[in-house]
Design a binder for these strands. Structure first.
Length: 488
RNA sequence: GGCCUGUUCGUCUAGUGGCUAGGACGCUAGGUUCUCAUCCUAGUAACAGGGGUUCGAUUCCCCUACGGGCUACCA
């Protein structure tokens, strides 16, 4: 059975690149009715960020991904672990890593290394100045194993390195990149166990992926060069290796790796800017994958049905905000107004607007189809809540019309609206009635509608006057038109 | 420097040994319209370059150029 995992380090908030890696792993599992798991790789003690694990999980949940196994959050947002292959947090699996480095040591597939960081740096500098390939020079590789063990037991600071063969090739058969070969002699004797007793990524992934029974390892392209080391480890242990898929990176407009220096990168950033998960998921899924036909709109459920790892493209994709905005507007447009109101509510509260006395569904409907983000909806509907609007007098005058004319037209519509019963105060009734009235007076629509709309919104661009009347109600509509007249 | 890797409109991409190289976003123009947005119509624009192989290459091979990744007791 297919079993995939997302295995981030909790060194910060979940990055959109990480979200895509997680998404592809998730989709592959779902497509094949398999299991998707979350493992936390916290072997670097120095880079641990408080709250990182919680953020990763809540971001995945926001996106709609369900974690079948591994690390998750309970209803109180506390970290829990579920499944039979745990623990799923690497810092809780140290014994296991020690057991398997010992095995490697016994097999002579690994060795103690007592070189200091200073010496290592010296070696590297020397290699660089001589334009030689960099890497460990193998000095401790030749120490007698019994002797080395004695020194280690005596407390001498050491790491454990894997013993890479000096000849031959190691091939990676990658689901997206195909067959890639590496010359063994150029592969470093990777440190497996650090001086602090923690494993490096390379040892920990292999041990964990094996014992957690993953069938596929889906990760970023940056891991491709170290994959031969992992493959060699599988061979040394005699374990069956999983299938690999290395995803290309996501880059910015300058074709550089997405980074905090150039705008939003964390999922959290996009949540806060008012992007809906449907849009972010659809957009990100299509950065490097498409169904092979001309469909562009896919829900998570549809992606689960159609996703195909072999169709993932090899080239890096530019993260293009314009297209994301288009997706976001599209998905906002297709939400029910009840759902849209629900999603906008926290943004209203966050901006300090008191929504208690208002029907949010009618208000957000004004901007549905206009705004690209939930934040824009809130920003663009602020005028509805205002007690008093300020007007720019010239804005109230339509095109080549005059101030006198605008004043006159506003007075006329004011009188007309005053006579409309409150029970008929709805767009569906107001619109045909007013349009008919305008025609009977031989005015142009704009003569009346432009100043009226500006009087109701105070804005150059806004939803139409009838929608505004309907949302504001008769009393507020009358009051605003009256105020506007006095501004001219 | 070494190793690995990528390259179709500005962007995301489809595509195949023979097509007017398709779609989407963006942009431009027109229509609808009181504004904005929507919607409709049209337009814009690409096979990185050079060699081969071939009757024929965007497609297969080689080289070059330009990107990107890795080269830690970080992941």
């Amino acid at each position: 059975m297919t079993k995939t995992r997302f295995a981030p380090s909790p060194t910060g908030f979940l990055h959109v690149g990480g979200l895509r890696t997680a998404l592809y792993a998730y989709l592959l599992a779902r497509k094949e009715s398999g299991i998707f798991a979350l493992r936390i790789e916290d072997t670097d003690q120095e880079r641990f960020v408080e709250g990182g694990i919680e953020n990763i999980i809540s971001s995945l949940k926001w996106a709609g991904m369900h974690i079948d196994e591994g690390v998750d959050l309970d209803e109180n947002n506390l970290i829990i672990q579920k499944g039979n292959c745990g623990p799923y947090i690497q810092s809780q699996r140290l014994e296991m890593y020690h057991t398997y480095t010992t095995q490697l040591l016994e097999q002579q597939d690994a060795y103690y290394c007592f070189c200091t960081k200073d010496r290592l740096e010296e070696v590297r500098n020397c290699q660089q100045t001589n334009k030689l390939p960099t890497g460990y020079d193998g000095r401790c590789r030749e120490i007698d194993p019994a002797e080395a063990q004695k020194r280690a037991m005596a407390g001498e600071t050491h790491v454990i390195r894997m013993k890479m063969p000096k000849t031959g090739f190691t091939a990676v058969d990658d689901l997206v990149r195909g067959h890639v070969e590496f010359k063994n002699e150029l592969i470093d004797d990777q440190v497996l166990l650090k001086a602090d007793g923690f494993p490096t990524y390379h040892l920990a992934v292999v041990v964990d992926d094996h014992f957690m029974e993953f069938t596929h390892v889906i990760r970023g392209e940056e891991w491709l060069p170290s994959t031969p080391k992992h493959i060699k480890l599988y061979e040394m242990f005699g374990w069956e290796k999983p299938k690999f898929a290395h995803l290309s990176l996501m880059v910015n407009e300058q074709k550089q790796k997405l980074s905090k220096r150039h705008g939003s990168v964390s999922v959290q950033d996009f949540v806060e800017k008012g992007y809906v998960p449907e849009a972010l998921i659809n957009f990100i899924a299509f950065l490097g994958w498409n169904p092979g036909d001309e469909r562009e709109i896919f829900s998570l459920q549809e992606l689960e049905q159609e996703f195909d790892m072999t169709k993932v493209s090899k080239a890096a994709a530019v993260f293009n905000l314009e297209k994301l905005n288009w997706y976001n507007k599209h998905y906002i447009m297709n939400l029910s107004i009840q759902e849209l109101a629900k999603r906008c509510e926290p943004f209203y509260l966050n901006s300090g607007i008191d929504i208690r006395a208002h029907d949010l569904t009618k208000i957000v409907a004004l901007e549905q189809g206009r705004a690209s983000t939930l934040v824009e909806i809130v920003e663009h509907t602020g005028f509805v809540f205002a007690e008093h609007l300020e007007y720019e007098p010239e804005l109230l005058v339509w095109k080549k019309s005059t101030a006198e004319d605008a004043k006159e037209k506003l007075s006329l519509i004011l009188e007309f609206l005053k006579n409309k019963p409150e029970g008929e105060w709805a767009k569906e009734i107001l619109e045909p009635t007013v349009i008919e009235w305008i025609a009977s007076k031989d005015f142009g629509n704009g003569d009346i509608l432009w100043p009226t709309r500006v009087a109701l919104s105070g804005l150059k661009n806004s939803p139409g006057p009838f929608e505004l009347m309907s949302v504001l109600g008769k009393e507020k509509t009358i009051r605003r038109i009256l105020t506007a007249i006095n501004y001219i």
